[in-house]
Design a protein around this nucleic acid. Structure first.
Length: 643
RNA sequence: GCCGCCAUAGCUCAGCUGGUAGAGCACCUGAUUUGUAAUCAGGGGGUCACAGGUUCGAGUCCUGUUGGCGGCACCA
């Protein structure tokens, strides 16, 4: 009997039945066989030493490919688990998947681990690699496996098998020699030695069993693993570089903002940071005004009864800031604008002819976020959103949604950021509204996204209590993603707050509300932007656009004239007349990531010229004053105002 | 909120096994008038996050609190 393997290059070869992928690889070349970590047959994973059970499309998975890294990391997780169980008897294993850059394993142990244990654990892991234990795949009956794991005290494993595997089905267990075994889908390497030593334990964290905070808290050890030492080094270097882009560090270095102990999650915006903020707000205002939004401003603090009517009190009062007046009224600071906007909508009679009404507000919002969740600018307790609510008819939903997504794409392009992903958050367990309403709402959002040319990823259970939402995610410097833009469809709030318009039939009808934001929290968006640009903003956003720096005090008068001319032309200018060497001034303003340094010496003053030096370049661009100012103004013009 | 780690000058950090705080940058003063990434000299600056405790003596050890960091949970 023979089987036929079809290789990716199209070649097709016959092999004896029962040949292993490793033997196939060795038949091709020894060096290839060294680098191969697993195989795929018709797209399904296959262990290298497991005899093939039939022919098909055959692919060898190399250790430095994306698939190969996944195998290595899975093995690293198993080796970690073995090391931990050997060093800390009584520790139970639970679950250890691969992550984007590595892996983690969740352990159950009464005593907490400490990062001080990492050295010992890593050492033991390396010993396991050196021992080159064969990794053996075994197929077990479900019931036998449960009994086995129970008998050795692995209750989490037994529970997992019981719930994940159908009765009567078989499971696979991979073991390292006769020492250690874990339930696993595989594939795995032929032996622990193949893993190599390009791995490192990174961090320790608590994690709830099955992600539910009502369950036991486990201890998660994160690690990273790579094909070789060089890749590991590169990865660690990448992390270091990313740290330099951290918006909290840059916020301090560039004097943009600060946070202090008494105001957890509250931002003190310094003049430069606030300039950036205002520049972005002005831009957003122009963008939305141009497409038919109106702006309003509503109260910051309203009575408890108001939030009870909207439904926020019942669902969210834990995360609202609440205060009481001397006269005993209980008031809450607004966590969001929507119920306020409905009040404006409800004031007076609305006709279908008025719709859609696109009502925007940039006022501050306060949310009492839990203490462990605040994070620089990315998760704060006080913020502003580029918030708006679109009141419209059912028929207008798709059109309005599409127009919003188009606007969002335009704005993101202007800010130079790229969408990481768009998610469609579907109905949660706790929700208002009927199933039919939800189905229609979910479909309409997806339809609008498709019309705007955006692919969505549907995620179950993540919608707001009043409706499904589209989430537009961006990435930070170290790869975490944050929801920035959002579009939420809401049939519930208009109902609860009795919003209505008179339709063509002369009857009252409920409008639909679209909650939408492009930047989302301005704070968060600025945080992402700082990391995206590593603090070196494009000219139109930069808090300081030009520094006019003199060489000697002879140039003072001319420098002042230059700065005044630039200011008059609308540029944000600083004047550096200090008694310092040019080199010193250049260095300082370069470190501050100023887009343009205009150097003024005797020559420039005499010829009424400027020597411009741009961030990231040491070239000198000498131009006549008027022409230089005009050019800088053109460069500094916000994208929406450019011709 | 939960788990682990951390907290020394404005910033970055040093301070061994407990013996009454130190550097660089920044800041201030003086000198220097300088041509594209650090001119020189002098000076000021710290309740070592906070509160207790152990000790003859605590930045250092212990407990608690606050805040930060990395995760988990949460995220209208």
């Amino acid at each position: 009997m023979s089987i036929s393997l079809k290789f990716p290059d199209g070649a097709e070869r016959a092999y004896d039945d029962g040949v292993t992928p490793l033997a196939v690889a060795e038949g091709i070349s020894k060096s290839l066989a060294k680098k191969v970590v697993a195989a795929k047959i018709d797209g399904a994973w296959w262990d290298l030493t497991r005899p093939l059970e039939g022919g098909g499309k055959f692919e060898l998975v190399m250790r430095d490919s994306a698939d190969g890294l996944e195998v290595l990391r899975h093995d690293a997780a198993h080796v970690l688990a073995q090391a931990v169980q050997e060093l800390f008897p009584g520790t139970q294993v639970t679950f250890g998947p691969v992550t984007e850059d590595g892996f983690y394993y969740d352990f159950a142990r009464d005593e907490p681990f400490s990062t001080d244990d990492f050295e010992r654990i890593e050492k033991r892991m390396k010993e396991i690699v050196d021992a080159d234990l064969p990794i053996i795949r075994k197929v077990w009956e479900k019931e036998a496996a449960i009994a086995h794991f129970k008998s050795i005290g692995e209750i989490y494993k037994a529970e997992t098998i019981d719930e994940v595997i159908k009765p009567g089905d078989a499971i696979t267990v991979y073991s390292h020699g006769d020492k250690w075994g874990d339930l696993c889908r595989g594939p795995h390497l032929p032996s622990t030695g193949k893993l190599g030593k390009a791995f490192k334990l990174m961090k320790l964290a608590g994690a709830y069993w099955r992600g539910d905070q009502n369950n036991a808290q486990l201890q998660r050890i994160y690690g990273t693993a790579w094909a070789d030492e060089k890749q590991l080094e590169e990865y660690l270097k990448r992390l270091e570089e990313a740290e330099k882009r951290d918006h909290r560090k840059l916020g301090r270095e560039l004097d943009l903002f600060h946070i202090q102990e008494e105001g957890k999650g509250m931002i003190f915006w310094h003049p430069k940071g606030w300039t950036l903020y205002r520049t972005m707000l002005s831009y957003m205002r122009r963008r939305i005004e141009a497409v038919g939004y109106v702006e309003v401003k509503t109260p910051q603090i309203l009575e408890q009864s108001f939030w009870e009517k909207s439904g926020h009190w019942q669902k969210f009062h834990d995360s609202m800031f609440v205060c009481e007046t001397d006269e005993g009224e209980v008031m809450a600071v607004k966590p969001m604008n929507c119920p306020c906007h409905v009040q404006i909508f409800n004031h007076g009679q609305r006709s279908y002819r008025d719709l859609p009404i696109r009502m925007a507000e940039f006022e501050g919002l306060h949310r009492c976020e839990s203490s462990g969740s605040t994070h620089g600018l990315l998760r704060v307790r006080q913020m502003s959103q580029d918030d708006a609510h679109i009141f419209c008819t059912d028929d207008q939903i798709v059109e309005e949604s599409k127009a919003f997504i188009d606007l969002l794409n335009l704005v993101y392009a202007d800010f130079g950021v790229e969408l990481h992903s768009v998610k469609l958050a579907l109905r949660p367990d706790q929700r208002f509204g009927t199933d039919e309403q939800w189905t229609i709402a979910e479909d309409k959002l997806e339809q609008a996204a498709n019309l705007a040319g955006v692919q969505v990823e549907r995620i179950a259970n993540e919608g707001a209590f009043y409706g499904p939402k589209l989430e537009f995610h961006l990435r930070d410097a170290i790869g975490r993603t944050w929801q920035c833009g959002t579009l939420q469809l809401d049939y519930v709030l208009p109902e609860r707050l009795d919003a209505a318009y008179i339709a063509e039939d002369g009857q009252k009808h409920r409008p639909v509300m679209l909650h939408r934001a492009i930047c989302g929290s301005m704070e968060r968006f600025i945080g992402v932007l700082i990391e995206h640009y590593a603090g070196a903003f494009p000219m139109w956003l930069s808090p300081v656009q030009v520094v006019v720096a003199t060489i000697t005090s002879d140039g003072d008068a001319y420098a002042k004239e230059v700065a005044a001319a630039m200011r008059a032309a609308g540029l944000r200018v600083e004047l550096d007349l200090r008694n310092e060497k040019v080199g010193y001034k250049i260095r300082e303003h370069s470190l501050a990531k100023t887009p343009v340094i205009a150097v003024v010496g005797r020559k420039e003053a005499e010829e009424r010229k400027l020597a411009l030096r741009r961030f990231g370049s040491d070239a000198q661009d000498v131009a006549a004053l008027d022409a230089a100012v005009a050019a800088l103004v053109a460069e500094a013009t916000p994208p929406d105002l450019r011709r």
